[in-house]
Design a protein around this nucleic acid. Structure first.
Length: 220
DNA sequence: GACCAGGCACATC
DNA sequence: GATGTGCATGGT
C-alpha cells in the first residue's frame, strides 16, 4: 500500500522526470551553492559559482584566504552578498577546523552529530544543513522548504502552522529512508511549486490536481 | 513597477 | 515564544 507522499513522488516523477539536482558538481561546490541559494534563484547562484571558479577560488582554503571585499564581489550576483560572504566564510572555517577541509572525513561523521554541528554554524539553518547532508554527502536527510510546506498544507496533509521539523517528520514517516528518493522528491516539489501553486485557485494541469481536497485551493 | 527566487539571524513585543 | 523585518541581485 502506497502512502500519500509516495503517490505524490510517483506522480511528480511521471510528470517532470528526474531533476538531476547537483549531479556533476563537486561536494564542495554543493556546500557553497547551498549557502548561496538561500532565498535566491539558482541562475544567480551559478554566476557567483562561476566567479569563484574563474578566480580559482573553489576551495575552502582559498575562499578563506580571499579578503572580505574580494569575496563579496565574487558573490555579488547571488544577492545578499554581504551576508552570504559572512555565511560562506563561517561554513568554510568550520569545514577546515573540524574536518581539515576533507569531504571524506566529513562524510564519515555520524549524520545527526554532523547535522547538529552544521546548525551551530552561522548562516546554516535546517534547510541548508539538510541540503549539505543530502546533496553533498549522500546522507538520508530529507530537505523541505516553503514549496513543500505550501503543497502539503494546501492538500491538508500537514497543518499550515507545521514547522520545518514537523513537516520533515511527516515526509520521512511516509517514505523509505532512501537518499535518491529524498534527493529527487525535494527537487520535484520545487519544480511543481514553481510551475503551479500560484495565481489561480486550481491548476488543472498540475500533476497533483487529483489529490486536492474538495474546496481546497492550490494558490493564494 | 511589482513580485519572486532551492532562508536565516536578529530585533522587538 | 511568537511575530516582524532586513538582506540584494536578476528575471518575469
Amino acid at each position: 500500500m502506497k502512502t500519500t507522499t509516495q503517490k505524490v513522488f510517483d506522480q511528480l516523477l511521471d510528470s517532470f522526470g528526474p531533476q538531476h539536482w547537483w549531479p556533476g558538481n563537486s561536494p564542495l561546490e554543493v556546500m557553497v551553492g547551498a549557502v548561496l541559494v538561500q532565498s535566491t534563484n539558482w541562475k544567480n547562484v551559478e554566476q557567483a559559482l562561476e566567479n569563484l571558479h574563474a578566480s580559482d577560488a573553489m576551495d575552502a582554503a582559498r575562499i578563506l584566504a580571499l579578503d572580505e571585499q574580494e569575496l563579496q564581489q565574487l558573490l555579488r550576483p547571488a544577492g545578499y552578498y554581504r551576508r552570504k560572504t559572512r555565511r560562506l566564510r563561517s561554513l568554510m572555517q568550520f569545514f577546515v577546523e573540524h574536518y581539515a577541509g576533507s569531504i571524506e572525513l566529513m562524510r564519515r561523521a555520524k549524520h545527526f552529530e554532523l547535522r547538529k554541528q552544521l546548525l551551530a554554524v552561522h548562516g546554516i539553518g535546517p534547510e541548508t544543513a539538510d541540503a549539505i547532508l543530502l546533496y553533498a554527502l549522500d546522507k538520508p536527510a530529507m530537505v523541505v522548504d516553503t514549496y513543500t510546506h505550501r503543497v502539503f498544507a494546501r492538500h491538508g496533509w500537514v497543518d499550515f502552522d507545521a514547522d520545518y521539523h514537523q513537516l520533515q517528520a511527516h515526509l520521512v514517516s511516509e517514505l523509505p529512508e532512501d537518499v535518491s528518493t529524498y534527493n529527487e522528491l525535494h527537487a520535484l516539489l520545487v519544480q511543481v511549486g514553481k510551475s503551479y501553486c500560484r495565481k489561480v485557485p486550481r491548476c488543472e494541469a498540475c500533476p497533483l490536481v487529483d489529490m486536492l481536497p474538495e474546496g481546497g485551493v492550490c494558490a493564494g
